[in-house]
Simulated scan of single mutants.
Amino acid sequence: MKKLHPHRVGTALFVLCAMPGLSHALTESEPLDMVYEQAPEPAQRPNGPSAESLRAPQGCTLYLPAIEDARSNQVHAGHLTLMMPTVHATPRSVQSLRSGDAGAWTRDALLSTRRYGLRTVAGAPLSSAAARQATAVVALRLAHAWSAGLNLVSHVVLKASYSLPGGEVATRLYHGMGTRANWASGNGEFMSVLNLGMEEAVRGIAADAAALCEGRPLPAPAAGQ
Rank of each mutant, 00 (worst) to 15 (best):
M1G: 15
K2L: 14
H5D: 15
R8H: 14
R8Y: 11
R8N: 12
V9R: 13
L13P: 08
L13M: 11
F14P: 03
F14L: 14
L16N: 04
C17M: 14
C17D: 11
P20A: 01
P20N: 06
G21C: 10
S23Y: 12
H24L: 13
L26P: 09
E28Y: 08
E30K: 13
P31A: 11
M34H: 01
M34D: 08
M34S: 08
M34N: 02
V35P: 10
V35F: 10
Y36W: 09
A39W: 13
P40F: 05
E41Q: 14
P42G: 04
Q44W: 10
Q44S: 15
R45F: 04
G48Q: 00
G48C: 01
P49F: 09
P49W: 05
S50R: 14
E52K: 09
A56Q: 06
G59T: 04
G59M: 06
T61C: 06
L62E: 02
L62C: 05
Y63E: 08
L64Y: 08
L64V: 09
P65F: 07
A66W: 02
G78M: 05
G78Y: 06
H79L: 12
L80W: 07
L80C: 11
L80E: 13
T86C: 11
T86P: 00
H88L: 15
H88T: 15
A89L: 11
T90S: 13
Q95P: 11
S96D: 12
S96V: 10
L97W: 01
L97K: 04
S99T: 09
S99K: 11
D101C: 01
A102T: 15
A102G: 04
A104R: 14
W105A: 05
A109E: 04
A109P: 03
R114C: 06
Y116H: 09
Y116D: 04
Y116S: 02
G117D: 03
L118K: 07
R119N: 10
T120G: 08
A122E: 11
A122Q: 14
P125K: 01
S128W: 12
A130W: 04
A130P: 02
A131N: 13
T135C: 09
A136C: 03
A136P: 00
V138K: 02
V138C: 08
A139P: 12
A139Y: 10
L140R: 05
R141L: 10
H144M: 09
A145H: 00
W146A: 14
W146R: 15
S147G: 01
L150G: 13
L152N: 07
S154Q: 08
H155G: 10
V157Q: 01
V157G: 01
K159Y: 09
K159F: 10
K159V: 12
A160Y: 04
L164D: 05
L164K: 07
P165H: 00
V169Y: 09
V169T: 14
A170S: 15
Y174P: 06
M177Y: 15
G178Q: 03
A184I: 12
S185V: 09
G188N: 12
E189M: 07
E189G: 07
M191L: 08
S192Y: 00
L194C: 06
M198R: 04
M198D: 04
E199T: 06
E199W: 03
E200A: 13
V202M: 05
R203E: 00
I205Y: 04
D208M: 02
A209Y: 06
A210P: 03
A210Y: 01
A211Q: 04
C213F: 02
G215M: 06
G215Q: 03
R216G: 04
P217V: 02
L218M: 06
A223Q: 10
A223P: 02
G224T: 01
G224N: 00
Q225F: 10
